[in-house]
């Protein structure tokens, strides 16, 4: 049963604004620190959580977002999932779909990130960098699913087994 494999689980449903995103990042950093005992991994996961939540704020149609974090362990390495779920408009679902299609079509994650940086240099609104940053800097895979108006974005990675303290 999946529940047997869960080393840690966390879920938060709230109406984030950009200021609250930072509060949640600090909070989940403490959570990650306790679970993973690795500063680099903690920083990666906190950054990913921040970027996903900033996007959720940007794309949510009613302001509400569900953030869930799962750390799953079977034997050695642990699988980590950071998920955001929120309702979006048709226009925003199209923007997200296009961003993912482009990212998935890119042969090289870092080159794609550099291309996004080039475009970001002329943007006045938002960064358009979040997805590329999660892939290129945090080495996490990202996927999305759309169910009606609901958009789910998952970032996944595998981290080393916990060190006994």
């Amino acid at each position: 049963m999946k529940q047997d494999k869960l080393a840690a689980y966390f879920e938060l449903r709230f109406r984030p604004n950009v200021e609250l995103v930072s509060v949640v990042r600090r909070f989940v950093s403490a959570f990650y620190e306790r679970i993973v005992h690795d500063l680099d991994v903690t920083e990666r996961l906190a950054m990913v959580t921040h970027e996903l939540l900033e996007n959720a704020v940007k794309y949510s149609s009613d302001g509400e977002t569900l953030l869930s974090i799962e750390v799953e362990q079977v034997g050695g390495p642990r699988n980590v999932l950071v998920r955001t779920k929120n309702r979006t408009t048709a226009e925003n679902r199209k923007i997200v779909t296009e961003a993912f299609n482009e990212a998935n079509a890119a042969k090289d994650t870092f080159s794609h990130y550099q291309e996004l940086m080039k475009r970001a240099s002329t943007r006045t609104e938002g960064s358009g960098l979040g997805l590329g940053r999660i892939r290129a800097e945090a080495d996490m895979s990202v996927a999305y699913a759309i169910d009606g108006e609901e958009l789910t974005v998952d970032a996944r990675t595998t981290i080393p087994a916990a060190v006994a303290s």
Binding site: M47, M117, A120
Partner: peptide, 16 residues
């Protein structure tokens, strides 16, 4: 200790 992608974009804009 942390820089969001939005702020990182401002650095990219400066460099550009």
């Amino acid at each position: 200790s942390f820089m969001s992608s939005s702020c990182f974009t401002k650095m990219i804009g400066w460099v550009t």
